[in-house]
Computed example of a mutant assay.
Amino acid sequence: MKKVFALLLVCLFVVVVAGCGGQAEKFPTKPVTLIVPWAAGGGTDAIARGLAKNTEKALGQNITVNNVTGGGGAVGHGAGLNAKNDGYTVTMITFELLSLPPQKLVPFTYKDYDLLMRLNTDPAALTVKADSPFKTVKDFVDYAKANPGKVNVGNSGPASVWHIAAGLLEEKAGIKLNHVPFNGAAPAVTDLVGGHIQAVTVSPAEVQSQVKAGKLRMLAVMSDKRDPNFPDVPTFKEAGLDITFATWRGLAVPKNTPENVKKVLADAFKKGYDSPEFQAFAKKAGLGLAYAPAAEFKTFLDKTSANTEAVMKKLNLTK
């Protein structure tokens, strides 16, 4: 009788432990937060919200987008890096993870995260008001040469991707611009529409609605090919300047997030990415989709990081 009782206790113990273990390993059991280091309304925010909406079903939980702005992307990236590594906080990492470290503005790099995937790449575009006297890149460059430092060009933060894009334009065209920083592309574009600055060097997706509404005019894109959403807009190469430059966006979680948790997140976000709804959304928004899994994403960042630092050194943006 005692042996039977002891056996029952052992069985009960095994069942309880197994049940507890299974419950502990289940993920997710509550909503997930997606940190966006930039202001609402910009390209990063747009792709984050579109992806979150179409990933919730696959994940089985709500995904809340949290815009954590400031410091040219430093504040949001830092918040994501320092979050608990339980998978409930994902960060939309951006190009600035490559440009902030060379300036000694942050004590971390992309290597301090666990990568999930790359989502897209978007070229820079030079855009002005629809009633601007600048009809072409040549008009813009000629005026800037004759008026050094007088053309106010908005960007998404000091030494941000779009600041570097404008810096490349300066270098290649031999001009001097006045760089005006904002907490993201959206407020920069708003100020351009309002006539407070003369141009922006943000992505086509971030000015698409205003261009199509007739409020802004895109002069050229920094890519090898014309943007399919703007077939009449030339590339900078076609406009006489050899400039190609683009941003990228991806997903990452804090270092040492459990492998099973990362797999659940990666699988769910990939399903959201592949959904017809998200693909249609991205196409309509003008976002250049360019998926890459974690390993391929890291290889891309290793190469891009070295190239970015080299460009920044030429522009005297490093410390």
Rank of each mutant, 00 (worst) to 15 (best):
M1T: 14
L9M: 15
V10G: 05
Q23W: 15
V32Q: 05
I35D: 04
A39K: 10
T44G: 09
D45K: 07
I47A: 03
R49T: 03
A52R: 13
E56D: 04
N67I: 06
T69Q: 11
G71P: 00
G73N: 12
A74F: 07
H77D: 06
A79S: 15
G80K: 06
N82L: 07
N85D: 11
Y88I: 07
F95T: 10
L98D: 00
S99P: 01
L100S: 00
P101S: 03
Q103Y: 10
L105M: 08
K111R: 15
L115A: 04
A125R: 01
L126Q: 01
L126R: 01
V128N: 00
A130D: 06
A130P: 03
T136N: 11
V137Q: 10
D142S: 13
G154T: 00
V161Q: 10
A166G: 09
E170H: 05
A188D: 04
L192P: 01
L192T: 00
G195F: 02
H196M: 10
V200Y: 04
V200T: 09
S203H: 04
R217Y: 04
V221I: 14
P231I: 15
K237M: 02
D242S: 08
T244Q: 08
T244E: 07
F245V: 04
K255R: 13
E259P: 06
V264Q: 05
L265K: 11
D267G: 10
A268Q: 07
Y273Q: 06
S275F: 08
L289K: 14
A294Y: 08
F300L: 04
L301I: 04
N307V: 03
K313L: 08
